[in-house]
Nucleic acid binder design. Structure first.
Lengths: 196, 196
DNA sequence: GGCTTGGGCTTGACAGTGTCTAGTTCCGAA
DNA sequence: TTCGGAACTAGACACTGTCAAGCCCAAGCC
């Protein structure tokens, strides 16, 4: 009667992703995940030590997807500035299309990366892409690499966060307008750097 | 025997602020607040309809403090760019010195501003300061005001958020280094705009 | 005076949570 | 056939936010 042997772990992760996508981050609960997976409230504990471990696994997958999206986005471009802009657009789109997932990836009280190697490794792999791009931009613009990393990351992360938390809703009505505004901000940043 | 008539509301807010400062945002609970205020677990409900209302009141106070800090910081400067930089530094310092309070101000799942006039008004009053500064910067730099608002706010908010969530810990060790890096990022942004 | 009203507070309940401890069931190796 | 362990269930515990009653006391009115 068992549907398949070792896929409850995967089922739990998928149920978790569905749950936060549908109900938001605060709608996540071990027991609701178990209910959606069709198992007892204790079954998930056989595959994850605790609630945070499930979230850490989700965070790791999120960073891998973000990294993949970023790489796919920059492939079409050769100019360092254009590549950086492409990555920024991918970052914003990932955040706006997966709001709860994105939030979870950046909430240290939910997943403390120092105790979850998978989450930390995922984050690092996405960071590496940014670091490499920033190096080329820094070389061309004459800025320090660390400062390019810091400003570029902060810019797109701030855009994403403010939009996800609704802080820009009063000035940007629909999601198309938000995307356009974010792209314009990214363009301005890149152009300022280009002409530095 | 009553210490004073109508100060339990204030006591509850102070207890809440102490609690999140000490235990973080996730350490906040109605019952712990009541315990710290020395009253029964239901007493707070006599002054606030629910948990979210306490948080909304705290958020409102936070934005007022942020606004005051910003105004105090820009008073010493006359150049529009310098004033914008001063506000950015004040923003970062507020966030780093009051991490839980700052996070709460930007977490829409905890406080939905559309149902809490006090929180919305507080946020608006801080936003107004930014809007005015950005107007002057836009006039001097030839950029659109909305784009200056968006990029400046996103930059400092991204800096604050990434630092608070520990995402920059691996590259910025202590808090002095973090402050210096944030200031450098703000300076770079302002200087890029100056020479646009 | 007595009586009512209502604000401020307490007590007790309820459903929901994360997680601990004990089972139970089943399958493969000895 | 027995054993062992992996996968899972069931029950409990302390905690949460909030609803429903009730208690106490001062103010207002007869």
């Amino acid at each position: 009667m068992k549907p398949a042997p070792e896929n409850l772990r995967r089922t739990i992760l998928d149920a978790s992703l569905d749950l936060i996508a549908a109900e938001g981050l605060e709608g996540f609960s071990m027991r609701e995940v178990a209910r959606r997976a069709g198992v007892s409230h204790q079954a998930p504990y056989h595959h994850f030590p605790d609630r945070e471990a499930i979230m850490a696994a989700i965070v790791a997958e999120g960073f891998q997807r973000l990294r993949d999206d970023s790489i796919a986005a920059i492939e079409g471009e050769s100019d360092p500035y254009a590549r950086m802009q492409a990555m920024g657009r991918a970052y914003i789109r990932f955040a706006l299309h997966n709001p709860a997932h994105f939030k979870l990836m950046f909430r240290s009280e939910h997943v403390r990366e120092d105790r979850h190697d998978d989450a930390r490794a995922g984050a690092q792999s996405a960071y590496d892409v940014l670091l490499q791009l920033a190096g080329h931009v820094a070389a061309k613009s004459g800025q320090r690499t660390e400062l390019v990393v810091l400003t570029a990351w902060s810019m797109v992360h701030g855009l994403a966060t403010l939009m996800l938390e609704g802080k820009l809703d009063k000035v940007l009505d629909d999601s198309a307008e938000r995307l356009a505004a974010a792209d314009a901000a990214i363009d301005l940043y890149a152009n300022l750097l280009r002409r530095a």
